[in-house]
């Protein structure tokens, strides 16, 4: 059961930052990870700071750069027609997270703050080169997504800080996709998830793999392969080889490391074929 805890719903960012500086205070947004962890006795906050009343976290913009506030839930991301046009990979990823009911609560920012290696929203944000905008006692700072997630359940958030929003500064047109291997069709955590973007005009190919290392793995050197290899099947093979060199999956209750490796190869190939042809 959830143990006794204090609750505060600040009306302003200033109040929120102040509250978050108290001993063992946690921000509460969708709560779909935090409340589970509290019920299971994994986390023991003394104070929950409900940030859902903060206007700064309700922002959502798709004109020019994409801005997704900390309170934007995943169903909103799936349903927004403009976002679907500009950056479909976010909705595609979100659709695989948990269940419909949970997505009415779960936020994109919460998904990355939870920093699970299998976070389904992370690979898309990596390939879109998203930035996390953080507010804290020292003001605002922008953190690239791959510097924001630092390890298993670890982020670069400091005491008293709260994530305001995620920004995608350059949602340049490019073909994107997200694919997820799970144990069955019902809601499940990823065995492997992959996201990618390819832009033939700029010669950019970015591929990110989740659930196969302590953090999502953004492949390095994909641009060179993309520029030099014209045959899509050959490209898919080469990117997949690169992927296998870059990941370090483990055996756990969901999958063996070997299956994760082999599925990474399959899914990266499928991804590359989807976005590069």
């Amino acid at each position: 059961m959830i143990k006794p805890v204090a609750y505060f719903k600040p009306g302003s960012l200033k109040e929120a930052v102040e509250a978050l500086q108290t001993e063992n205070a946690w921000p509460l947004a969708g709560g779909t990870d935090l409340l589970v962890n509290m019920r299971n006795g994994v986390e023991h906050p003394d104070l929950l700071v409900d940030i859902k009343g903060l206007e700064e976290l309700n922002v959502f913009e798709v004109d020019g750069k994409i801005i997704i506030g900390g309170n934007i839930n995943l169903n909103f991301i799936i349903d927004d027609a403009r976002l679907r046009k500009v950056c479909p990979v976010l909705g595609q990823s979100a659709l695989t997270v948990a269940t419909y009911q949970l997505r009415n609560r779960a936020t994109l920012v919460g998904n990355i703050c939870n920093a699970s290696p299998a976070a389904d929203m992370a690979p898309a944000l990596y390939v879109m080169e998203a930035e996390v905008v953080v507010s804290g006692p020292q003001g605002e700072r922008h953190v690239p997504i791959n510097e924001f997630i630092t390890g298993v359940k670890k982020t670069s958030l400091k005491k008293g800080e709260v994530v305001l929003r995620v920004e995608i500064p350059n949602p340049k047109v490019g073909k994107t996709a997200f694919l997820k291997k799970q144990r069955y069709r019902g809601h499940d955590l990823a065995t492997v998830n992959v996201a990618g973007i390819a832009n033939p005009d700029t010669g950019t190919l970015r591929v990110c793999i989740g659930a196969c290392a302590v953090t999502p793995v953004l492949l390095k050197g994909t641009d060179e392969l993309y520029k030099s290899i014209k045959d899509v099947d050959e490209l898919a093979d080469k990117v997949s080889e690169l992927a296998l060199q870059s990941i370090s999956p483990i055996d756990d209750v969901r999958s063996s490391a070997e299956y994760r490796r082999d599925m990474t190869a399959v899914y990266v190939k499928r991804l590359v074929r989807t976005i590069c042809s």
Binding site: I2, G31, L35, R39, T99, Q101, L102
Partner: peptide, 22 residues
């Protein structure tokens, strides 16, 4: 823990698992 949906209610027009809402 929000996995089974037996506690589903509608909150402000949207379904939620009420076990994961305070």
């Amino acid at each position: 823990i929000g996995e089974c949906g037996a506690c589903t209610v509608v909150m402000n027009g949207k379904t939620v698992t009420s076990c994961l809402v305070l």
